[in-house]
């Protein structure tokens, strides 16, 4: 469960990214955060995963106030999230398997258990046959799916995605949309920041609209 109340974010230099945002996301929901570029979608996701801290207001995730977390506690909060980035943030000196194994390695999983979960995640996104390939040899859509496999391999409670279909053509976007729906169906809370209308039409989620940093009704 995620609760935001009276959240504002002002960046150093004076840019006001978010103004007095308040909403709640129940466990198991699928939520789209929509709005034009610069409306504050990415900033909102960053606040949830403690990548940024709010200037005022509170962000509470599973009962923890994210804004007040000690630096040492931040990594453990992040393990509740699977993050899908628009630019994928894959490591190009590691193969597909190793990229997906990264979160499990960090959390100290034993090698066997880790390999089993990595293969399950790769199978889920349809990349099992590319296990030994390097990300650079994959297409844009495959790289995005690899990023999703890495995000869900440790079975997080929340899946946060920032413009997951931003750089993909329609066919790939549909595949990705279906993937998110399947995770949501097994109980994962999915939060997607996007301006992709077709994705929204296909998944018919709850929508939170932002306009110039404020909630738009």
């Amino acid at each position: 469960m995620i609760t935001l109340s009276h959240v504002s974010k002002r960046y150093p230099g004076g840019y006001q990214a978010l103004i007095d945002i308040g909403f709640a996301i129940e466990t198991g929901e699928m939520v789209f955060i929509v709005g034009h570029s610069g409306a504050g979608k990415t900033t909102l996701l960053k606040l949830l995963a403690a990548i940024e801290r709010p200037t005022s207001g509170s962000v509470v995730v599973n009962g923890q106030n994210v804004g007040a977390l000690k630096p040492l506690a931040v990594p453990f909060l992040r393990r509740n999230f699977g993050l899908v980035f628009q630019d994928h943030k894959l490591l190009f000196d590691r193969n597909v398997f190793e990229n997906v194994a990264l979160p499990l390695q960090i959390m100290g999983y034993a090698r066997n258990e880790s390999a089993r979960r990595v293969r399950a995640a790769l199978d889920k996104v349809g990349l099992l046959k590319y296990e030994k390939s390097f990300p650079i040899t994959l297409s844009g859509g495959e790289q995005q799916r690899l990023c999703i496999a890495r995000a869900i391999v440790h079975r997080p409670a929340f899946l946060l995605a920032d413009e997951p279909t931003g750089s993909l053509d329609a066919e790939y976007a549909t595949e990705i949309g279906d993937l998110f729906r399947s995770f949501n169906q097994v109980g994962v809370t999915v939060v997607i920041a996007t301006h992709d209308q077709t994705l929204q039409a296909r998944l018919s989620p709850r929508v939170i609209a932002l306009k110039q940093g404020a909630l738009a009704l």
């Binding site: 453990f76 993050l83 943030k89 979160p103």
Partner: peptide, 10 residues
């Protein structure tokens, strides 16, 4: 930066 984002401790 990436492994920090996915929950690696310092």
């Amino acid at each position: 930066e990436v492994i920090k984002l996915i929950g690696a401790t310092d």
